[in-house]
Design a protein around this nucleic acid. Sequence first.
DNA 1: CCGAAAAAGATTGACGTACATCATTTTCGG
DNA 2: CCGAAAATGATGTACGTCAATCTTTTTCGG
Lengths: 341, 341
Amino acid sequence: MERPTIHDVAREAQVSLATVDRVLNARGGVAAKSIDKVQRAVEKTGYVRDQFAANLSRGRGYRFVFLLPAGQSSFVRSLIAAIGDEAQRVRKDRINVDVRSSKTFDSAAQVAALRRIDPEQTDCAAVMVSDVPEVRSELARLRGAGVRILSLVSDVAAPGRDIYVGPDNEVAGRMAGSFMGRFMRNPIGSVLVIAGSLAARDHAQRLFGFRQVIASEFPGLNVLPVTEGFDDARRVAAIAQQAMADAPLMGVYAIGAGNAGLLSAMKNTNSAFRPVTILHELTDAARKGLRSDLFDLVIDQDPARAVTRAMSIMRDLADGATADAGRGDIPLNIFIKENVQ
Amino acid sequence: MERPTIHDVAREAQVSLATVDRVLNARGGVAAKSIDKVQRAVEKTGYVRDQFAANLSRGRGYRFVFLLPAGQSSFVRSLIAAIGDEAQRVRKDRINVDVRSSKTFDSAAQVAALRRIDPEQTDCAAVMVSDVPEVRSELARLRGAGVRILSLVSDVAAPGRDIYVGPDNEVAGRMAGSFMGRFMRNPIGSVLVIAGSLAARDHAQRLFGFRQVIASEFPGLNVLPVTEGFDDARRVAAIAQQAMADAPLMGVYAIGAGNAGLLSAMKNTNSAFRPVTILHELTDAARKGLRSDLFDLVIDQDPARAVTRAMSIMRDLADGATADAGRGDIPLNIFIKENVQ
DNA sequence: CCGAAAAAGATTGACGTACATCATTTTCGG
DNA sequence: CCGAAAATGATGTACGTCAATCTTTTTCGG
């Protein structure tokens, strides 16, 4: 019942320790039949490499890099905080975490930041970058050099990463649409949509899902032409104020950041009727809005959770496991007044 | 920049390795000023015990026990499946997981199962048991014997456990209440509530939260006297069928399990109008109900997530960390038609 | 200031794996 | 069937900590 070691495997396979080592670490120079013997012995004994001992012996720890957009976005800030917390917690497991940032939405800066990642010094990198060709090819290069890549929160097309860790943004948009319609007494009228930038993959996906549901389930609702707030509170405020002045709104869907602006616009309105308001990310402004009944629902991708999950996957990838796709999916958290603290 | 070891600490503190060891492992027999010197050296060097080496040296792994209610409840089954998955994943970290079960709702059986946990063989136990005095005192005994205790999914009062890992069930009930009211075009009428058993702490908490919100936010809704379905599909079906026959229902809130019964009752109804239906746990029946528009919303406590979180906390507790309360809180997952796959 | 007790120092062998080196055996083409 | 190449065996050290043992120094009450 004791945990089997390589010695047990060697005995079982009737080969030497050295051969077992060669097979387990794929060093080559082993006859096919010996490889077979070892593999069968591994199965029979139920051997699993002791990662503690392996790491100790290698004298190596895990070297992880997080590459995030710079800027003071509340989401990114809490992402960074979560990474710090988690990094602290896993130091005892020899995990070293390095957080770097590159200019938001600037793919040249992202490529430069990626170039600065030394494959020799890095086991795994979690990146939150644009899904554009130049970034993708740089990611592919890193992967080729042995760095495992996670795309975090915003996905990158397949050859650029090992696995995506984050929520399904199209589903997020669909949920927004569904709640939007169902929260209305009578779902007929106009809905304002404020995106950050439609160049951001996650924003575009949310919009797509949202429109889909509104069109099929609530045909009485008219989605106004999408506006872009560029995640900036003042611009968002201006857009919202203007739209509410223009015509009565039944609903507002804020896809991106800058929702402090939305909050102030809502406050300033003196209409008795308030549109159903749904937004993303549980920021301070979002909390305030929910508590004061100005916002109805927030769809949140829990940064702490994404980080925990990412870190766990990174460890497994660094230990040589293969990434099964579903592992990175992160359910969205729904917040309403009742569960926001 | 290298990771500091006890040698570095010893040098920095100007004491011997043995003394550092005595301090770090609280073996006693060390002068106060030496303890102080070592602690300062630890701070200065940033030393963090290498858990790999420590475990290797101790020759010990982690021995965790999960104690769950027996029975074929879909939730418990997926909990068990999640434990199995996670156990597989962490074998490389020398974590051994033992899953045991005790009769549901039977506190005598729970106590017996707890007695069978050998403190010498167990570092940490995650238990899903009744919050009654005899169970609590047995848990306290185990804690006294050095076993760290997590209450899983359903909480146990403070002295019986180190930390609770699971959702806030009162909040869950409040959310159910809020969605219930908001999903109605005109929230006036009767709401049927089907609990499993009000002796179960989590069910009682959900009901409490639900009633609170309905009373304060939707005074037009009348919560009918609570029925108990004992998590049994046939009984739940009978209750629902009867209630729908008795009087028109605006809403149904199913607090417990057995919702395959609710599904069939809904199917069999030939009224054009369907009450807003909200339930807990994303079981197969719940999925079917959502897809076929018979159910409106499911509040799910993701078993896999609870297990992952529990396992991570168990490791930290076993490594000697103290449990900060908030760590075990697990957000609830909200499912509607749009995000159920 | 003596002597016992307390504190501190010194040393050593695990633990399971990685990795390197050197020796020995097997395989196989010509 | 010889000899080179391939395959395998044998062995030792290192990683950082724990735990045990033994020795030396310090402390402090009487």
